[in-house]
């Protein structure tokens, strides 16, 4: 009897050790390669004499000054992120809205498909000069550029997702009088949500690229503008810090999206797991 608590404790201890082990392993898996590459960069660039490739140690040393001890986070990074967010969210609304419409009706789809394929094939950066003509140099133009690139992956993935809505589930909705907005949300959008999230992920990377590009053409603030300015004034080390910051932001945004995906598609991962288990049985 006296032994039992101690055995329980050791059981708990083992579980904690296992959890810690898993956490360590996860951390190593996620950060191992990035840090390895950084270390390689550090070593290879350590005594670089090339003006355009300063040592990583110098880049990291000036990162602090360039971005954190200046006004640039508020004056440049924040406007960039806001433009990206506005363009991306508008693309979600337009892409999912049109995607549901096009995906739901075969006739609309047949009608739109050639145009969609054409528009998708146009590289969004070439739209920047065109959009400048219509929307000027302000924020509207930059948001439109981001929107024009982000909308395609979301739209096309939504169409595919909506097309694949299960027939039995559709009939279930008909039998139980589930129509209108309830059907749209509970059946169509939720069914398509795994594909929609795939579209979001593709759109995010496109959006970051376009955010930078739109700021390179005509801007007086933003990350793209600042990095271009550094490059034009031969502030090469500062330019590299900007590139690092961009990479970091991209990584953080992708992580944010992953978090959203984990919670919104929990059912999908669970369903797939259970189907895999059934297949093994």
């Amino acid at each position: 009897m006296a032994k039992r608590p101690s055995r329980q404790r050791s059981g708990v201890g083992r579980r904690i050790t296992a959890t810690l082990g898993r956490a360590l392993w996860w951390t190593a898996a996620v950060f191992g390669l990035p840090f390895g590459l950084l270390a390689l960069w550090w070593v290879l660039s350590a005594d670089s004499q090339t003006f355009y490739l300063p040592p990583l140690s110098e880049i990291l040393a000036s990162f602090d000054d360039v971005w954190l001890r200046s006004d640039r986070l508020r004056a440049d990074v924040l406007p960039s992120l806001l433009r990206l967010a506005a363009g991306f969210l508008l693309a979600v609304v337009v892409g999912v809205g049109l995607g549901v419409l096009i995906g739901s009706f075969r006739r609309v789809r047949a009608f739109c498909e050639p145009v969609l394929e054409f528009l998708r094939a146009v590289p969004p950066p070439v739209l920047v000069p065109v959009l400048m003509l219509f929307a000027g140099f302000g924020n509207t133009m930059k948001v439109l550029v981001v929107l024009s690139g982000c909308v395609w992956p979301i739209l096309l993935n939504t169409v595919e997702g909506v097309r694949a809505v299960d027939e039995v589930l559709t009939e279930t909705c008909r039998c139980y009088g589930i129509r209108g907005p309830a059907r749209l949300w509970h059946l169509v959008v939720r069914s398509a949500s795994p594909q929609i999230v795939t579209g979001l992920r593709q759109a995010l990377s496109v959006g970051i690229i376009l955010m930078v590009i739109s700021e390179m053409f005509a801007a007086n603030n933003g990350l793209g503008y600042t990095i271009t300015q550094f490059q034009r004034t031969f502030a090469v080390t500062d330019m590299w810090t900007g590139i690092l910051l961009l990479g970091l932001l991209g990584f953080l945004l992708a992580m944010l999206l992953r978090l959203f995906e984990r919670s919104a598609l929990r059912w999908y991962f669970g369903l797939r797991q259970s189907q895999r288990d059934d297949g093994q049985r």
Binding site: D166, E167, V168, L169, H186, L187, R190, W267, Y268, L271
Partner: peptide
């Protein structure tokens, strides 16, 4: 329906 796996909403 026969296909119980497809007639319930998995989400």
């Amino acid at each position: 329906f026969q296909e119980y796996g497809r007639s319930l909403f998995p989400w």
